[in-house]
């Protein structure tokens, strides 16, 4: 994005984009339903305004299967 007033360019994300990662479960790990809490922090801006920074908390559920002998 070109900031005309500063004569600078700033890399930004717009339209659609994605991030991928991985979670490594410890061993051992108790069987049953568990949740992984997370926080998404961002600040959305247009050419005219920047909204206040936001943080959205979320929880991702995962069922840990028991080992069978």
């Amino acid at each position: 994005m070109k900031i005309e007033a500063l004569d600078e360019s700033l890399p930004v994300h717009c339209d659609s984009f994605q991030g991928l990662g991985s979670l490594l479960l410890g061993y051992p790990f108790p069987a049953g339903r568990t949740v992984f809490p997370g926080k998404l922090r961002f600040q959305q801006c247009s050419d005219a305004v920047c909204e206040a920074p936001e943080t959205i908390s979320f929880e991702l559920p995962l069922t840990i299967e028991p080992f069978r002998a």
Binding site: D15, G19, P28, C45, S46, L62, F67
Partner: peptide, 26 residues
């Protein structure tokens, strides 16, 4: 995935979308 065993590595994804004319820094 919704299920996994202890010791497994599972994937995590985050897909973002912004309305036209808006952006986030990165």
């Amino acid at each position: 995935a919704a299920k996994a065993f202890a010791g497994q590595q599972i994937g995590f994804f985050a897909k973002f979308r912004l309305d036209r004319g808006w952006h986030v820094c990165g």
